[in-house]
Amino acid sequence: MALTREQIAMRVAKEFKDGDYVNLGIGIPTLAANYVPDDIEVMLQSENGLLGMGPYPTEEQIDADMINAGKETVTAATGASIFNSAESFAMIRGGHVDFTVLGAFEVDVTGSIASWMIPGKLVKGMGGAMDLVAGAKNIIVTMTHADKYGNSKLLEACTLPLTGVNCITRIITDLAVLEVKDNAFHLKERAPDVTIDEIKQKTAGKLVVEGDIAEMQF
């Protein structure tokens, strides 16, 4: 069975290490904050200028001056700091954020990512995505393995305008966990009850399958 959005988020959260500073993109990445293991601490960075993002506010705590990068009302966790946008992107671009998790339309075997622009459709902008993929030490892409028509999103070369080049090292899809290196996708784990054949069939770029491929654990 392909994973649900929540299950992808649960698998993402298992990547975090104690003491990591993490930036989570909008959508599935944001859900991963709900599944951080109890025995570790991570601090969430929101690129509008907040390090130590807390949970959503209660009705009484709502404050128009306290929002996250998705423009949602939010709270600051204990030990948080708030700063301006240049400072925020200095810590991103300077490689101080340990992990970035974001969605994508396409990723290719060189680790290039397309996530912000589909020609012919209205372009709303890249926001902070280009800075994030240029700056973080580890970038995980979460997405469905194929689009709704069954077309693979893991390609030999991206077809859409890029967000960044040679920057993605790990992909977690609804079917598999993959590493990107040596111009190939390397299959590391498969979703429960998903066959390697199905993953092969839905991976358009070069796929390397070596040894036993374990089922994902949550």
Binding site: F89, I92, A129, M130
Partner: peptide, 11 residues
Amino acid sequence: LTPQGTLAEKM
């Protein structure tokens, strides 16, 4: 369209 961090740094 200008990346957010680049925009902040340009200013």
